[in-house]
Write a protein that binds this DNA or RNA. Structure first.
Lengths: 330, 330
DNA sequence: TTGAAAGCGCTAACAT
DNA sequence: ATGTTAGCGCTTTCAA
């Protein structure tokens, strides 16, 4: 078996309590003793058993994150930041993949609940009431979903969409199609909200298509409808769909951005690498991931009753898939 | 506080021992009692505390995975499969990102050791001796790294590379450049091994370039050298580098596959989406991830002394970046 | 078939 | 400043 606190105590000629104190509240033991204990600990390669510690303190030193799809770079971007921030705070992280299944989301959080101090739930598809139940099981922080009473790290999708429409309208587009993602998704709702506002502001004509699966195949399928709708610009729910749109348009012989402009959302790595490179909206995934962890850990520490919902800015990234519509080139 | 085994015991009018038995070894209690206990448990929404259980049984029901970079789709592909397989076996998973730092790899495994039944270490950069030390800390399974005495889930990079060279030689290429990834990486060593064998077999001329960082920027940088080397085909260490190569060649006005053929390795999603779509080698990441988990769990269960090292097949995916060299078109 | 009790590794009163 | 002890939630002897 591994080395326990008792081994260290024996070796340092002190009681286990002293060892515990030397490690967790150093100023409670005489410096001399502390040194001796620490030495013994290192010599034996002692690592306290966090599970045992957690049993007493109620704090596990772990956090959980559940995402809809680990195959989606957007969520692994969040995950990377979450695990990095957690590591800084000396916390370990549990991951779970709900496979886009709302029911699984709830189950996974419950399964984790006992082993973590809190969980970051990313873009949950769960309805509000069920989400509140889940929030009762553990400390919860939502990412890209707003729910009264639950802290959240949000990204300003609506604002990003506003920037997209401003850009397109500025180029001279008057007829725009939006390719919806999942209706229940908070992100889609926000994007649509920003879209409607901006479209009204510019007096631009909007064709609302979908919903489509937020994947490559969804984009393939959506492209035909968008072309039929006879618009000069296509705003896809996200980059992956936009890539599908691009591929389908190429097959159809529709030139981008000559015949039609296309935009995505998320700024995934390969949005910059496809050709033409995709005009899109950069989402602050890393920042939001860090914020989520901070929210979780701060609240645990301070038991304060406030419920912060932090929204991070998005940013339009203009690349090669947008240009003035035909007849408006200069 | 949450509901404990004691609450269930009280409610079912039995001792805690009986509750424990009803849950973990059902055939040790009278069916009638069992039903009563189970009912009480569900009514209270009881979830056993795994940490406490682990304290006694020595099994945590958790496994760990440490990867060099969560931003790399290759590793998140493995992660997705690992977490899915673990979930099937009712295990939770800890993730950690070593940020490509070998020292961090060791630290992370040690930090996890107490909370997991074993860990999957992906493509570690650690040297053999240090790796053996790490293996002593917990049950270890290596992914894409072979080490005597340690079970491993491997992918047949050498074989994949053989297929690439066969393909290229078959098209008529006689001068090929290989863009090395990190020298210490087992995958690069394997790819190179497969390459040398195949190249000798075909009597093809090889220019060995690098090592380069296995990233987009590495590809950008490598492309110039490859062009200067005056070869008709470029084999990149992986897809990301290949994408960099493609971009740089485009800037240079070198046409692909007209002037030069390019291949990658990994078959990431966007290898199919770039243009022209990339000829590459599909790595069985999901299969390897599952295998790694199975290896871990099987060994834990059966304490058998055998050390399986399972290698999964790779597969050449021919797409648009390879063609006969100039003067050999038909 | 069930219960009482010991104890996993650790921390937090309570003593000293 | 340090030691003794109870006990976190659970499983597992050992008795009954």
């Amino acid at each position: 078996m591994a080395v326990t606190i008792r081994d260290v105590a024996r070796r340092a000629h002190v009681s286990v309590a002293t060892v515990s104190r030397a490690l967790t509240s150093p100023d409670l033991v005489r410096p001399e003793t502390r040194t001796r204990v620490l030495a013994a600990a290192t010599e034996l390669g002692y690592q306290p058993n966090r599970a045992a510690r957690g049993l007493i303190t109620g704090r596990t030193g772990n956090i959980g994150i559940v995402v809809p799809d680990l195959g989606n770079p957007f969520f692994t971007g969040v995950l990377k930041a979450v695990q990095a921030r957690a590591a800084q705070a000396d916390h370990s992280v549990f991951v779970a993949d709900s496979d886009e299944d709302p029911v699984a989301e709830a189950k996974l959080v419950h399964a984790m609940a006992k082993q973590v101090d809190g969980v970051v739930l990313c873009a949950p598809g769960l309805e509000d009431s069920r989400l509140h139940e889940v929030a009762a099981a553990t400390s919860l922080v939502l990412l890209n979903r707003r729910l009264p009473g639950v802290p959240a790290a949000l990204m300003d999708s609506a604002g990003g969409m506003g920037a997209v429409v401003d850009h397109l309208a500025g180029l001279g587009h008057r007829r725009i199609a939006y390719l919806n993602g999942p209706r229940t998704s908070w992100s889609n709702q926000e994007r649509r909200r920003g879209l409607l506002t901006a479209v009204a502001r510019h007096g631009v004509d909007l064709t609302d298509l979908g919903p489509f699966a937020p994947r490559y195949e969804g984009g393939l399928q959506a492209a035909d409808l968008a072309v039929a709708a006879d618009t000069t610009a296509i705003i896809a729910y996200n980059d992956i769909m936009a890539l599908g749109v691009l591929a389908r348009l190429r097959d159809l012989g529709v030139s981008v951005p000559g015949d039609v402009s296309v935009t995505g959302f998320d700024d995934l790595t390969y949005a910059a690498l496809c050709c033409p490179p995709l005009t899109t909206v950069a989402m602050p995934v890393a920042r939001a991931g860090r914020t989520a962890v901070d929210l979780l850990l701060d609240r645990l520490g301070s038991g304060s009753p406030e419920v912060p919902q932090v929204v991070a800015e998005t940013r339009l990234v203009v690349r090669g898939t947008t240009a003035p519509p035909r007849g408006r080139e200069r």
